[in-house]
């Protein structure tokens, strides 16, 4: 993991050398090497020894997510399960479902009433619909994510196990990350006033359970995998099937991939 700073970060000696160059060096440390300054002084040799419940080791996992569009029936069980599991505030979504209806002439009708939380009703588009499908969405937990890049205070981060999370005690609520997410996965929590988003039910993962959305999907349209696990089914599907990601042109490297995604999907 490149996040580990013991080996490849700036050492204490480097920092001292920089500081020794005087005020100019100080300014340089502050301006260009802020990260180095922090890592040099706070790295403990025991960093990776810290374990979660049941001896969970964050460095031994890397979660991936797979959505099979053809299996989604648009029931909204995942959205409701997510809301219950994570106390998601009303009218905000850590996951949601979009319905696409495409007419013969290429018109695209998209809706997501209350994020699919209350299911979908028959809708009369008045057009000759030739294909239609439901697309579950959630945070893509991008490896090259603009939301973490743009967080000014280091409150948004990528965990060693590949999750994009928000430190709710350090977030200043500037909503820059909400602007930066191309997928609309983030929101400002109306009561906590901090950025909030899908955590892939991290509290469940560390206890060996799966996410609430995956567990409660009746058709298996949503699946969770672990890239670092042996014989991981999802890794195998991704390795051998024609998969797609959302907005690939932005090079965010989403860890959430889709089977059967159509070009109309935004």
């Amino acid at each position: 993991m490149c996040e580990r700073k013991e080996g490849n970060g700036y050492g204490r000696r480097d920092f001292l050398r920089m500081a020794a160059t005087g005020a100019g060096g100080m300014a340089l440390v502050m301006f260009g090497g802020g990260q180095a300054l922090v890592s040099a002084n706070t790295v403990k040799s025991t960093a990776s020894d810290q374990l979660g419940p049941g001896g969970y080791d964050p460095t031994k996992h890397h979660y991936i997510y797979l959505v099979d569009v053809d299996k989604c029936i648009g029931c909204g069980s995942c959205v409701r399960a997510c809301e219950r599991e994570n106390q998601v505030p009303r009218h905000f979504f850590r996951t949601w479902i979009e319905r696409y209806q495409v007419s013969r002439s290429g018109e695209v009708f998209v809706d997501s009433p209350n994020g699919g939380h209350d299911g979908f009703q028959p809708s009369d588009t008045g057009a000759d619909i030739t294909k239609a499908f439901f697309v579950p969405k959630l945070c893509n937990h991008c490896e090259n994510t603009p939301c973490v890049q743009l967080c000014p205070v280091g409150a948004s981060f990528v965990s060693p196990d590949g999750l994009v999370l928000v430190d709710e005690k350090r977030c200043i609520g500037c909503s820059y990350c909400v602007q930066a997410c191309p997928y609309g996965s983030r929101f400002i929590h109306p009561e906590k006033h901090v950025a909030s988003k899908c955590t892939l039910c991290y509290h469940r993962l560390v206890r060996g359970e799966t996410t609430a959305c995956v567990q409660n999907c009746p058709t298996g349209a949503r699946q969770l995998g672990d890239r670092k696990a042996l014989h991981d089914r999802v890794s195998e599907i991704i390795a051998t099937s024609k998969v797609h990601v959302l907005k690939p042109e932005l090079h965010t490297e989403p860890q959430c991939q889709y089977l059967g995604l159509s070009r109309e999907v935004r």
Binding site: L150, P152, R170, I172, S175, H193
Partner: peptide, 25 residues
């Protein structure tokens, strides 16, 4: 800001890959 009382975080731990973090300096 959602948390103005934490505004100084931007100079305590400025994350320099963010344009906004340069503000304090």
């Amino acid at each position: 800001l959602g948390h103005p009382e934490r505004a100084l975080n931007i100079v305590i731990t400025p994350h320099f890959t963010s344009a906004m973090s340069a503000f304090g300096l």
